[in-house]
């Protein structure tokens, strides 16, 4: 009885490791090896691939990096510009009264990976597709979270020039009002030539 069971176990186990058909692994493996060899024989492809990889990595870093965007305008008065800059503060740590303070001190929210923007017009789909990495996107495109838009604390209006949006021919965005965790933006203007 035990021998019969052992035989059955062997039979079943053997069939559990039997491949259906013959996959011709030799052809598959040799095809991949030949492809790689062709790549090696074309050394001019290497720098192209390296450049592409570097550009891709840079793009990803640019999109996910929480670093602040450069300010274009307006330039604060000299006396105020020389005032000591406040330390960078995460958006979550901001107090409403701090944000609405009349002191024209511009602070960059270096630690804010996200900012909620309420737009007065719909954002172009190209921008949404580029920056909305976490679908589903909101039905109301005028209230959305922009992962790569840095929050700026300071008096409105402030114009920011979004890094990385140049390729999309998006004009600089003027910040009309700033709330805690929210930025109200003026209508985006699209098209080559910007603002």
């Amino acid at each position: 009885m035990t021998e019969k069971l052992d035989e059955l176990i062997d039979t079943v186990a053997q069939r559990m490791t039997e491949a259906d058909g013959h996959p011709d692994m030799r052809t598959r493996v040799m095809a991949v090896i030949d492809d790689r060899a062709r790549l090696v024989r074309r050394p001019w492809l290497m720098p192209l691939m390296a450049t592409g990889a570097a550009a891709g990595a840079a793009l990803v870093w640019m999109l996910v990096s929480p670093r602040p965007l450069p300010l274009s305008q307006p330039v604060p008065p000299a006396s105020q510009a020389q005032a000591p800059a406040a330390p960078a503060t995460p958006v979550a740590a901001l107090q409403p009264e701090t944000v609405s303070s009349p002191a024209p001190v511009v602070r960059r929210m270096t630690a804010a990976p996200r900012a909620t923007a309420r737009l007065s017009s719909a954002m172009p789909e190209s921008v949404i597709a580029t920056h909305m990495s976490e679908p589903p996107w909101p039905d109301d495109e005028q209230n959305m979270t922009i992962p790569t838009l840095p929050a700026l604390a300071g008096p409105a209006p402030i114009t920011i020039e979004p890094i990385g949006w140049h390729d999309l021919a998006i004009a600089p965005v003027t910040v009309a009002a700033i709330e805690v965790k929210a930025i109200e933006l003026e209508p985006l203007r699209t098209g080559a030539g910007g603002a």
């Binding site: 559990m16 490791t17 039997e18 491949a19 259906d20 996959p23 692994m25 030799r26 598959r28 493996v29 040799m30 090896i33 030949d34 060899a37």
Partner: peptide, 30 residues
């Protein structure tokens, strides 16, 4: 490469069966 191809042909059956023993699905095993 042809010599390696011969090695592949010689051992592919044993290799696939080992992978099947671990994975149970032929596509994954291949």
């Amino acid at each position: 490469r042809e010599a390696f191809g011969a090695l592949v042909q010689r051992h592919e059956r044993a290799a696939i069966r080992a992978a099947l023993a671990a994975l149970g699905r032929q596509a994954d095993a291949e």
